[in-house]
């Protein structure tokens, strides 16, 4: 189920960095199977469990799809965690248990996401503020405004809305289908639209793209709007999953740094211009597998952290070590 999309994005020429994420994913799966068999815990090899693993990281997955756009265009977004918190709180406060408010709430949150992305993009392109600082500042501002008004779980989503997180077709949750559909849409945009190819051009070399007549500022702003929109959607999902939103849930899940980590593990280059959505999805699944492997093996939480840190470095080194370009 996960391999097919990966092959779909394979370019005509054989390139190592495109395959690296597949190799990493296969390695993670192999380690998981070996471990489960070695520990005699074959009950973890059921379909139920596969779905549980894939469903572990929906929030992270949706956020990472957006982050991929930001990183592809040679930018970065540290404000996603705050946007997730804000989106979740607004969702649950606007809905406040009323099924009739579901649509207004979603529209409000999406416009919130679009506005944040727009401001991020404008500050980065027009004021020429380094994206790291611009989005970090944005993150502080959103967090401040949010915690000025709310200091706990606020509002509630109606039972009808919890279907988004808890409903399923057979054993496959809607949210899982939604995440892959969103990834498919993102893949389509990146591969088949003008905007998609502009993103790669601008990320690869902004000056060259500008000379080629691409309105680079618009592309960067567009990427940031998509990134913040995805974070907002992730917040909506989280509100549905947690039944409510609180101002700390984004920061608590470390979605900012984790989304960046899975994007680069998936082979998208931090310098921009190379990579893609299916690599990111592979990165997300690798993270879920790691979590599950650790749970199966009963790894202590602190050891888990050590291994996770090493895996991030090792996975990125796996791609980057052969690169001839200097890195910062």
């Amino acid at each position: 189920m996960t391999d097919t999309p990966l092959t779909a994005s394979k370019p005509p020429r054989f390139r190592f960095d495109r395959h690296a994420s597949t190799i990493l994913l296969l390695a993670a799966i192999a380690i998981y199977i070996v471990l489960v068999v070695a520990l005699g815990q074959t009950r973890f090899l059921t379909l139920d469990n596969l779905v549980a693993i894939l469903g572990r990281s929906i929030t992270l997955g949706i956020t990472a799809i957006g982050q991929t756009f930001a990183i592809l265009v040679a930018s970065i977004d540290l404000s996603v965690a705050s946007v997730i918190s804000a989106a979740a709180v607004v969702t649950s406060v606007v809905m406040n248990g009323e099924p009739s408010m579901m649509l207004p709430a979603i529209l409000a949150v999406l416009s919130l996401g679009a506005v944040v992305g727009l401001i991020n993009g404008l500050v980065i392109t027009k004021l020429e503020v380094n994206p790291l600082i611009a989005t970090l500042g944005m993150s502080l501002i959103i967090q401040g405004v949010l915690s000025y008004y709310y200091n706990n779980f606020a509002g509630a989503v109606p039972a009808e809305f919890q279907v988004f997180a808890y409903g399923s077709v057979g054993i496959v949750p809607y949210s899982l289908i939604f995440m892959f559909a969103l990834a498919g849409l993102a893949w389509f945009v990146l591969r088949f639209t003008r905007f998609g190819s502009d993103i790669y051009s601008v990320g690869g070399n902004q000056d060259a793209a500008r000379l080629a007549g691409i309105k680079t500022a618009r592309v960067v702003i567009g990427a940031h709007v998509i990134c913040s929109l995805c974070a907002a959607i992730a917040g909506i999902y989280l509100a549905s999953r947690l039944r409510s939103g609180a101002p700390w849930i984004g920061a608590e899940g470390v979605y900012d740094l984790e989304s960046i980590a899975v994007v680069v593990i998936g082979g998208t280059v931090l310098a921009g211009g190379r990579g893609g959505i299916w690599g990111t999805m592979a990165g997300v699944i690798i993270f879920s597998l790691i979590d599950s492997i650790f749970n199966v093996a009963g790894v202590d939480a602190f050891v888990k952290q050590v291994l996770r840190g090493i895996i991030i470095i090792a996975a990125v080194a796996f791609y980057a070590a052969r690169s001839q370009r200097p890195v910062a």
Binding site: I76, L257, I260, A261, V264, L270, A271, D300, A301, F302, V303, K304, Q305, V306, L307, R308, G309, I310, I312, I313, V316, A317, A320, A321, S323, R325, V327, A328
Partner: peptide
């Protein structure tokens, strides 16, 4: 790691941060 494995410093030191926190607690 940054110079020879060519890992961008943001990621290399992020990984180091997570690892060291884990080591400290472990």
């Amino acid at each position: 790691v940054v110079s020879y494995l060519k890992v961008p410093s943001l990621i290399a030191t992020l990984g180091m941060m997570i690892t060291l926190n884990g080591v400290a607690f472990m």
